[in-house]
Amino acid sequence: MSSIISVQDLSKEYDNGFKALKNINLEIEQGEVIALLGPNGAGKTTLISIICGLVSPTSGQVLVGGNNVIKDYRKARSMIGLVPQEIALEPFQSVMNGMKFTRGLFGKRPDAELMKDILMRLSLWDKRDAKTMELSGGMKRRVLIAKALCHEPAVLFLDEPTAGVDVELRKDMWAVIEQLKAEGVTIILTTHYIEEAEAIADRVGIIRKGDLLLVEQKETLMQRMGQRQMVIELSEPIIAIPKNLKPFNLEYSSEDLTLTYSYEASGERTGIASLFTELSNAKIILRDVQTHQSSLEDIFVDLIGDKS
């Protein structure tokens, strides 16, 4: 796959000396969904704001479809749709007129069929003539997505798309993102909801204090950095962990009657077979066994914790 967005040595320093981005390099492939994770103030929004033209970089450059976002801004911006973090809509404008306005700004004439299709997909068709001030918060967010899509962008930026929305709407939005991905739209979303990245992203980038700490395929990241835990439920309590089990660093919970064994999922030898042999030697009777994969959240917390 080819890069549709190329971020090269990008830095942003504000007048007060605050370095929002430090020498960021990032290649985003066509058709992928990439999630930029990071705590508040990490630089996620600054990064997408520079790519979209809202903020000027201090140094470095960004290419969208091979077009420099400053020198060839018309071509670059034509390819981009942005769903901002805050709900920013003209309150007295109808949903349909708002979409026509946005499409016009992108140099395109109204396309009734396309507008209808987008509004139907976002469950807004019934509200097409309603003023945006009359809509609920969730609907307003969908209007922002509709406006971002109405000029048929190749790249869609979603800045905290599900911040403050209910679970149902969040799932709806994920479904929309899946559909757009299937249509070949490249999607870049910033979020601090780990589960969001876990649910919809192909790749995950982690930003902290203006540094892009890593960018990995989600599965690779979870495999590389994730730990598995095996929880062994016992039939009877034990007084202490037997000597022959000490090398396994088991954690015993007398309340739950469980032994927990942590191991690297990617390791060649997980030690599970040996553990079961030693459990048998120690005459410990098992009731149940469960394994658990570290979530992106666990990885994220570990990573941020390590770096700080």
Binding site: R77, I80, L82, E86, A88, L89, T102, F106, K147
Partner: peptide, 16 residues
């Protein structure tokens, strides 16, 4: 007014 509402982002991100 677009500055106040925040909707001015549309002008900044459009090829205009």
């Amino acid at each position: 007014f677009p500055k106040f509402l925040g909707s001015i982002y549309e002008l900044h991100t459009a090829p205009i």
